[in-house]
């Protein structure tokens, strides 16, 4: 995983070093993008995810334009099948429009996945870089906390936390971030350890740059690509976690729709409304699959070690 050793000339000045580091990064980036353009599978996954994300982000605008309220009940129009006039994806048990609900649920599910993964990474990067750079007592304490948290199966902490905190979408983001940060911290700490003894960092220190400046100006940007990769992988995992919690009755509660709780609610009605089971399941499946493929593809494309 280490990058090529810095050239001897790089020892001349910090400015030079920074420039060369940046150049190397840019060339990696360029090479990555070039590789990515050839990876059709990843491109397809990216496009699908982009469309889903846009549909979700603009859900209120879209359903508003169609004149559909995702929460309006209509008890006499329950279990309408896919393709019913006015209800593109049919209706659920109490006559709510499934299309509108899927879009609004996507907002919540993707939101939990995206922000959960983003917050975990932010916390993880902050602590990981500090622990890796400072080492010593801070590192030991962080290590102890992380090992402790990692020794409890995460679903188990999730279950305890969710029953203690009654999750709304926002609370759930908080909970998964609180659990997810340990993995990110480990990853970032490892990367920092590798970078910390690089010449350009040593020189920066010799020039009197403050620790914070070194960490957040010199180290963090250099481990940025790992952050992006971890993000893609994390979102998919969290969408699945959300649905699992819903299954255990501890996820986001109705009337707020998520793909997970729509799927859970529909289980018992699979005879009367198979489309209610099929559609949210498909959404989760497609989204998570795309995210996995994107994660793999990005790693392939931006891994400096792999050959073309």
């Amino acid at each position: 995983m280490t990058t090529a050793a810095p050239s001897p000339s790089a020892r001349l000045s910090v400015i030079d070093l920074e420039l060369s580091a940046r150049r190397r990064r840019e060339s990696l980036m360029a090479r990555g993008l070039r590789r990515l353009r050839r990876d059709r599978l990843t491109l397809v996954a990216l496009s699908i995810l982009f469309i889903l994300a846009m549909l979700s982000v603009f859900a209120p605008v879209i359903t508003g334009a169609m004149g559909i309220d995702p929460n309006a009940t209509n008890p006499t129009q329950g279990f309408l099948p896919i393709g019913s006039p006015g209800n593109l994806l049919g209706t659920d048990k109490i006559g709510r429009d499934q299309f509108a609900r899927i879009l609004h649920a996507g907002r919540v599910s993707l939101g939990i996945g995206f922000f959960g993964a983003l917050f975990s990474l932010t916390i993880g990067t902050t602590f990981g870089v500090m622990a890796g750079y400072w080492g010593g007592a801070f590192d030991d304490i962080m290590n102890w906390i992380i090992t402790t948290l990692d020794s409890i199966p995460s679903l188990f902490i999730l279950v305890i936390l969710s029953s203690a905190l009654r999750p709304s979408a926002e609370v759930l983001i908080l909970i998964v971030s609180l659990i997810g940060w340990t993995g990110a911290t480990r990853l970032m700490r490892g990367q920092t350890l590798k970078l910390k003894n690089m010449d350009y960092i040593l020189s920066a220190r010799a020039m009197g740059a403050s620790a914070l400046r070194i960490m957040f100006v010199h180290i963090v940007p250099n481990i940025f690509s790992y952050t992006a990769l971890a993000l893609a992988g994390g979102i998919g995992g969290l969408i699945l976690t959300e649905s699992g919690l819903s299954f255990l009755g501890l996820g986001v509660q109705p009337p707020t729709a998520t793909w997970g709780n729509m799927l859970t609610d529909a289980q018992q009605m699979f005879r009367r409304g198979p489309h209610l089971v099929f559609v949210p399941g498909l959404m989760i499946f497609v989204t998570v699959l795309c995210l996995y493929i994107i994660g793999d593809g990005l790693r392939d494309a931006f891994d400096p070690k792999t050959e073309d």
Partner: peptide, 12 residues
Amino acid sequence: SGNPSVDASTLI
């Protein structure tokens, strides 16, 4: 939570 009839009836 967890009872579909209760969910549905309260929403209606």
